[in-house]
Amino acid sequence: MKLFSGSFSAIEKGLDYSALKQKVVANNIANADTPNYKSKEVSFKKMFDETLADQLAAYRTDSRHFSFQSSRNHPAVVTNRNLSFNQNGNSVDVDKEMSDLATNQIYYNALVDRMGSKFNSLTNVIKGGR
């Protein structure tokens, strides 16, 4: 949704990140007792690089120049393979996951609040300031 500025799309990308993080954290918590389950996390850097690549448009004068196409084949969810907190090989730290869940909820609420204020500003402009 590209109305008047890039702020709506930036907030939308932030909400996409928050939704993916919520899914991953919830999946980790649900599998806290599963033997040999390795916890996963969302790589902010990979998501940021994909978003940046989507927004960059480059004119290539030579085929040897770098391409700015999005690299969708690398998922933003990474698995922590070398960790093990339990005797059964599980690497989920429930305290850390609950902390991540709370942090993500605050982030999501801030983005939703910002989106609401953007829409309120647009409504105010449409009504002529009344």
Score class of each variant (00 low, 15 high):
Pro75Val: 08
Arg60Glu: 10
Lys96Trp: 11
Leu3Asn: 11
Asn82Ala: 05
Leu52Asp: 06
Asn124Arg: 08
Ser9Thr: 14
Arg72Met: 11
Ala30Lys: 07
Ala57Cys: 01
Thr61Lys: 15
Phe48Cys: 07
Asn82Pro: 00
Thr103Met: 12
Ile106Pro: 00
Val92Ala: 02
Thr34Ser: 00
Met115Ile: 10
Phe85Pro: 01
Phe44His: 00
Asp100Glu: 15
Thr61Ala: 14
Ala26Tyr: 02
Asp113Ala: 04
Met1Thr: 12
Phe85Val: 08
Asn124Asp: 11
Val78His: 07
Ser43Cys: 01
Thr123Asn: 11
Phe68Asp: 10
Leu83Arg: 12
Asp113Gln: 10
Thr61Ile: 11
Asn28Ile: 06
Ser7Leu: 13
Tyr108Val: 04
Asp93Arg: 06
Ala26Thr: 08
Phe8Trp: 02
Asp16Leu: 03
Lys96Pro: 02
Gln55Ala: 12
Ser70Cys: 09
Ala19Leu: 14
Asp33Met: 11
Ile106Arg: 11
Ile29Glu: 01
Ile29Asp: 04
Val24Leu: 07
Tyr59Leu: 11
Thr123Phe: 02
Gln55Arg: 11
Val42Lys: 05
Ala10Cys: 06
Gly128Thr: 03
Thr103Asn: 13
Phe8His: 03
Lys13Tyr: 05
Ser84Gln: 13
Asn82Asp: 07
Val92Thr: 04
Ser91Ile: 03
Asp100His: 09
Lys23Ile: 11
Ser99Pro: 02
Gln69Ala: 15
Phe68Lys: 14
Lys127Tyr: 04
Glu12Phe: 03
Ile29Trp: 03
Asn104Asp: 00
Asp100Asn: 13
Ala58Tyr: 12
Gly14Met: 02
Gln105Pro: 02
Leu20Thr: 15
Met98Phe: 13
Lys127Asn: 06
Arg64His: 14
Leu83Gln: 14
Thr103Lys: 13
Asn28His: 04
Asp49Leu: 09
Asp54Cys: 05
Phe68Ser: 13
Ser18Pro: 02
Leu15Thr: 07
Ala53Lys: 12
Lys13Glu: 08
Asn124Gly: 14
Leu122Asp: 01
Leu101Ala: 07
Ser67Ile: 07
Ser7Gly: 05
Leu56Gly: 04
Asp100Trp: 01
Met47Asp: 03
Phe8Asn: 04
His74Ser: 14
Asn36Thr: 12
Asp16Tyr: 00
Ser43Glu: 05
Ser67Leu: 04
Leu122Pro: 04
Asn80Asp: 08
Lys127Glu: 06
Val112Thr: 09
Phe68Ala: 13
Lys127Val: 02
Lys38Trp: 05
Gln22Asn: 10
Asn31Gly: 00
His65Tyr: 10
Ala110Ile: 02
Gln105Ala: 14
Phe119Ser: 08
Asn86Lys: 14
Lys38Phe: 02
Phe119Asn: 08
Ile11Val: 15
Ser7Val: 15
Asp100Ala: 07
Val125Ile: 10
Thr103Gln: 13
Asp93Gln: 05
Asp95Trp: 06
Gln55Asp: 08
